[in-house]
Design a protein around this nucleic acid. Sequence first.
DNA 1: TTTTATTTGTAACGGTCACTAAAGAATCCT
DNA 2: AGGATTCTTTAGTGACCGTTACAAATAAAA
Lengths: 195, 195
Amino acid sequence: MTVTNKKRGRPRGFDKTQAQEIALKLFWEDGYEATGLSKLTKAIGVGAPSLYAAFGSKAQLFEKAVNLYQAQCTPFFQDAFSASNLPDFICLLFDSAVKSYTQKNSGRGCLILDGTRNASDPEALEITQKIRENFHRQLVDKLTQLGAKEPEKMADVCQTTMTGLSGAARHGLSRDKMHDVAQILAHSIHGNPNQ
Amino acid sequence: MTVTNKKRGRPRGFDKTQAQEIALKLFWEDGYEATGLSKLTKAIGVGAPSLYAAFGSKAQLFEKAVNLYQAQCTPFFQDAFSASNLPDFICLLFDSAVKSYTQKNSGRGCLILDGTRNASDPEALEITQKIRENFHRQLVDKLTQLGAKEPEKMADVCQTTMTGLSGAARHGLSRDKMHDVAQILAHSIHGNPNQ
DNA sequence: TTTTATTTGTAACGGTCACTAAAGAATCCT
DNA sequence: AGGATTCTTTAGTGACCGTTACAAATAAAA
């Protein structure tokens, strides 16, 4: 029994995944609201109706771009989440954040933590907020596994620090200086016998 | 010799300082770009030309509002900057930040650290950036006075942490949880013999 | 070949953006 | 009173926002 994958109408004139990648780059660099439809259509090289036919709305395109972002981020944080003790986890987590937030040829900072800051579209705000909440749960789980005394509070500490690193990256702090900050904070935290 | 303070033409129909206060509230709550002229004129109760006659432009009104913000913030951080030892300074600094970033009847987070995030107006960006640079120098001075071993790096650590706290406030983290985060971070840092 | 389905380009929608030209209104100075 | 100065109101600027109606174009299915 053969299956034909060919669709009926006129074929799409652009690559959907590649469009998401371009959108990701723009959203990452300038944030959700500052990235207008005209920027997107110009960069992707396609008319607005084509974008809307493919993705539905600006917010839905943002959601796809964010999914791609998460996929690209995973390898950065894989080492951290396979750490077998608390000090290593904290240190690798912050180090990974710095590396991820200061890459060349991409936006600075974190799209999830800063991409919708000061945005007013509730749809876009919800997308990043849910991912932050999900990441919070992942942090609590991992910290619990590693025997942290107050995993909930430590997760807040980690997320707040990452938010600070993302903001610092957006403010232009160099990768080297951010690395120092991450190291000092990580060593401080896991050197403290209270954690 | 008498001096007349009265101006010549038609008197202004609104209070300029009060207008700055209203603008501060709006910019603080929604950020620079999301705060449109229509919001401002409606809230202040004045026509757009009156605002432009009084302040020149949206960016210049923002600058005035930011000045007011700094004046309002100073008392929050006064205790910290009169601390006489490093642990007290760090602890009071982070505590003051949390209190300032989670006030009722005002925006959450810090106007300087987050008010122009993802904004594209270079004039507005420069205003907050210069204040951040100035604050960095203040931090370095104070940390040097208190005998910090690496005052430059510690200033980056402090500023990054405050940026994280501001972002966390904007993300909706409660004052209590933020207080815990600030306490853990402060105690971690000044409990570390490396600092 | 005709029908059906999908994407395309053109052109526009109503709305908001920051900003301002022009004229009337309110005050002081002469 | 008359002129000078400053502010307010009305109304509008062009540019951009996200989004879409419409019809031509392109493909597979009938």
